[in-house]
Every structure is written in structure tokens, then in C-alpha cells.
Amino acid sequence: MREQLLALKEEVSKALGSASTDQEVDQLRTQYLGRKGPLTKILRSMKDLSEEERPLLGNLANQIKQELADLLDGRREKIRDEERRRKLRQERIDISLPGRLPSRGGYHPLTTVTREIIAVFQGMGFEVVEGPEVELDFYNFEALNFPRDHPARDMQDTFYVAEDVLLRTHTSNVQIHTMKARTPPFRVLAPGTVYRCDSDTTHSPMFHQVEGFLVDREVSFSQLKGVLTVFCQTLFTPDVPLRFRPSYFPFTEPSAEVDIGCFLCRGGGCRVCSQTGWLEILGSGMIHPEVFRSVGYDPDDYTGFAFGVGIERIAMLKYGIDDIRLFFENDQRFLQQF
């Protein structure tokens, strides 16, 4: 019987050697270890053995059974492993092939820049307010201390819809609407579309602005510098050089133009900064007492500052766009870049 068992083992390992699929292994398992297989037969005939032989051969039989099972498992595992490897080898593809793309959308760059600007000022407590684009002369000019027949009006060539009705030339009209409707303190940001009759590579008859203003008691010019410094450092780089210089806007006094150091030439002078090393970014100033008077505030009670940024200007600088008309041509090859 011992010989029988050993021969069985020999036979199975030989048969396994030529088995190359899972099914063949399973077949062998049934054939040899199944209920009708030779091993079962041997185990059944165990009862015919003597008391001494039975445990010895019983152990051997169980051992062989285990060995056969291991052999079969090992073979099956090996076959599966080979199968997996074969598959992996077969499934190798050229991953440099282009991907399957969904349609490619994009935000207009003016939207992106506006969002960035709003985010910075939101962090400093400014809320967003909108105003009308078709506006009365009073809100766009008169109340902002642009008297009639004053050369200051030449600074902004205006589209008219009717006598005293115009397309706003800046979003500063929101200052007047807000101040008339509310009581300070407030911090307001007014993004929007504005219009001037002008058209060339740096001027568009329609463009976008963000106007901001803060009104409270005891607001100082140094706070204006503080807020605008944080703004420039956040929008550009924390170490961007800044320059405040006197200027003139009818609705602010003192007025300041804010320049940042040209990041293209690092101050050395280039075409973009007209060789000055500086880029004009913002107009700003302390809100003019006449503006407060025109909305019924006492300039002795309140002070404030206001500033305005051109969105196209910032976008042109940030993205290196050299023609303002590109923003409104809406060519897909332009739009998909942002």
C-alpha cells in the first residue's frame, strides 16, 4: 500500500507537469482526489489493515493527500501567475497616445482677473456692489466734482444716449449711489463695465474697472497706502516695488497714482513700461470734500478713500497680452488659453 501511495504521488506530479490550464488542474484534482479517485479507494481499504499498520499508513496516506493537494494548488497558482503575466505583457499600450478629451471650456481672462481682485479685497472686508451702466450726468460727473465745462471732463471721452444721460465712464458712480443710500462706515468694491469713445491697441470703447472705496471717521492717506500696498503685494508678488505719486482726479484729493516696479524688466526699462521701469496700476486718493457735500455728508464728520483699477490693464500685464482688442474678439484660440 505504501508503494501504491508513493506511485500515486509520482503519477500526479507527472500528470501536472503537462497540465497548462486551470481546467486541466481541476480535472486532475477530481481524478485523483475526488470521491471516485484512487486516493479515496486506498483510504477506504485502510480498514482492512492490521491495528499496527493502520496508524502508520494512515499518517502516510494523509500526508500524501496533503502533498497532492499542495502540488495541485502550486501548479494552479503557477498557471494563474503565468496567465496574469501573459495578460500584462499583452495589455501593454502606447501611453504616449493622446487622451480622450472632453470639450475644453474656459473662463474669460477678464472674469479670472476680476475674481482675483475681488478675492483680495474681500479679505480686507470689502463687499461687492453693482451700479447702472447707463447713467445720469449727475452720478457720473456732477456729484463726483466734475463741473460742467471743466477740462477735467476731457479726461474721459463720453458716449451720450440723451442730454445728461450717458454710458458711465467709470464705476465711480457706485460711490454716489452707495453714499446716498447708506450711512458710513462701509467698504465697497464696484466691479463693472465702463465706456469711453476711444479705440486703438491700448484703448477700447468698452472696458472694465474695479472701483473701491472706504468711508469712516478718521480715515487717513496712510491707510489708503496700506490697503493698496496689500492689494499689489497679493495680486503680484510680496516684494513688488511700489511707488505712490501725486496726480489729479476731480473726485479725490490728495490724489495718487500707484505704480508697481515693472516685473518684465525688473526696473531696467522695457517696451511695456515705456522705459520707465514702472507700470501704472491704480488711480486713487482721499474722497474729495465736494463729493461728500454732494451726497449730504459733512466732510468734517467723514473721511474716506477711493481707488480704481483697470481690469484689462492688469490682465494684459499678467498674461503678456499686447492688444486690448483681443479681449473682445473672442477667438477660440485666445479663450481656450485661460
Binding site: S103, Y107, H108, L110, E133, T193, Y195, M206, F328, Q332
Partner: peptide
């Protein structure tokens, strides 16, 4: 998959 455009008013 849309691109945003900004047209003149």
C-alpha cells in the same frame, strides 16, 4: 466645456 466670451454692449 463652454468658453466664456465678452462682447461689446
Amino acid at each position: 466645456g463652454f468658453c466664456e466670451v465678452v462682447n461689446y454692449s
